[in-house]
């Protein structure tokens, strides 16, 4: 499977947010402002890449040989939660401003379905280590792309006269629907 196809499919054709419905909670929550979206995107990319490598190694060298595949979910989520807590502690010391800007959304990365989703998809697609890393980073870039596009639109949405009932999450969901319609255009171009 050539890597370019993986990158294209992960970012555009099968975008994790618009086509696979993963990571919607932080997507709706964080994409209010551009800076926090980028900060969250970078943090998710970092954690997703690290988590993908560690989960791939643990699955193929520990769980698979011992026939403990059913421990896959719990082992992965423990690794992800541990990594996020680690990133949180380190970030709090090294870069307090980004830490405060991300605020609640850093621990929320643990419950971010994309990271566990990607870890599981990597195993299901039987990627080797290079494909796993490339796929995870491209998915994270796709997630950040979706986040940044949404943040750009939402900042203008706040000034448009949206009816008071549709303000906030409702209008962002409808916008996400239209964006997802646009992203569907890519799906026919190339498949894995």
């Amino acid at each position: 499977m050539n890597l370019l196809a993986i990158v294209f499919v992960a970012i555009l054709a099968n975008n994790i947010v618009f086509n696979q419905f993963l990571g919607i909670c932080p997507y709706l929550g964080v994409s209010k402002r551009l800076e926090t979206s980028l900060g969250m995107g970078i943090a998710v990319t970092f954690v997703m890449a690290m988590a993908a490598i560690v989960t791939w190694v643990v699955y193929n060298y520990v769980l698979w040989p011992l026939h403990l595949e059913y421990l896959r979910t719990i082992a992965f989520i423990l690794i992800i939660a541990g990594l996020v807590q680690l990133v949180e502690t380190i970030l709090k010391k090294t870069n307090p401003t980004l830490f405060r800007a991300l605020g609640i959304f850093l621990p929320l990365i643990t419950t971010n379905c994309t990271i566990l989703g990607v870890a599981i998809l990597n195993i299901q697609a039987e990627h080797n280590i290079i494909e796993t890393v490339v796929y995870s980073i491209s998915v994270a870039v796709g997630f950040t792309l979706a986040l940044v596009i949404m943040a750009g639109i939402r900042e203008r949405l706040d000034l448009a006269n949206v009816s008071s009932y549709l303000r906030g999450a409702a209008v962002s969901l409808v916008t996400a629907g239209i964006l997802s319609l646009a992203f569907m255009g890519f799906s026919g171009m190339m498949t894995l």
């Binding site: 419905f21 999450a169 969901l173 629907g177």
Partner: peptide
């Protein structure tokens, strides 16, 4: 379209508005 991704987003968005 309702069975596909965009439909889900739009339906839920409008439902949220309705409930508000």
């Amino acid at each position: 379209v309702l069975a596909v991704a965009p439909g889900a987003f739009i339906t839920l968005g409008i439902l949220l508005g309705l409930f508000n």
